[in-house]
Amino acid sequence: MSAHKICTVDDLIPDSGVCALVRVNGLEEQVALFYLPHTEQKVFAINNWDPLGRANVLSRGIVGNIGDELVVASPLYKQHFSLLTGKCLEEDAAVKTYPATLEGDDIMLMA
């Protein structure tokens, strides 16, 4: 695993998500990047594939919190996925998460 610069903070949408294409072990993966400027961590990265709706859409969901959990709601069928753990709150499903950081203006991803 190594840290990649994915994009800059200008590419992100505050309090919402965008998608980046990241090469992991020689294969391209779609990564949903969420920018929550009011949180400590600020940037969250999970896989873009919605395993329940079966489409690459999670970056286009609404973010928020359910209890203590920061989540994104799938835009297809509204299940919530944790931005930290990738776990689905309603069903037995999960998506991959990636450690992401904001360094200066750069978005760095461990993958």
Partner: peptide, 18 residues
């Protein structure tokens, strides 16, 4: 923008395949 459902965000109707 962050408040909108994806349909309003992209001003189009999302279908099952995204």
């Amino acid at each position: 923008v962050p408040l909108q459902d994806t349909n309003d965000t992209f001003m189009a109707n999302m279908q099952k395949d995204g």
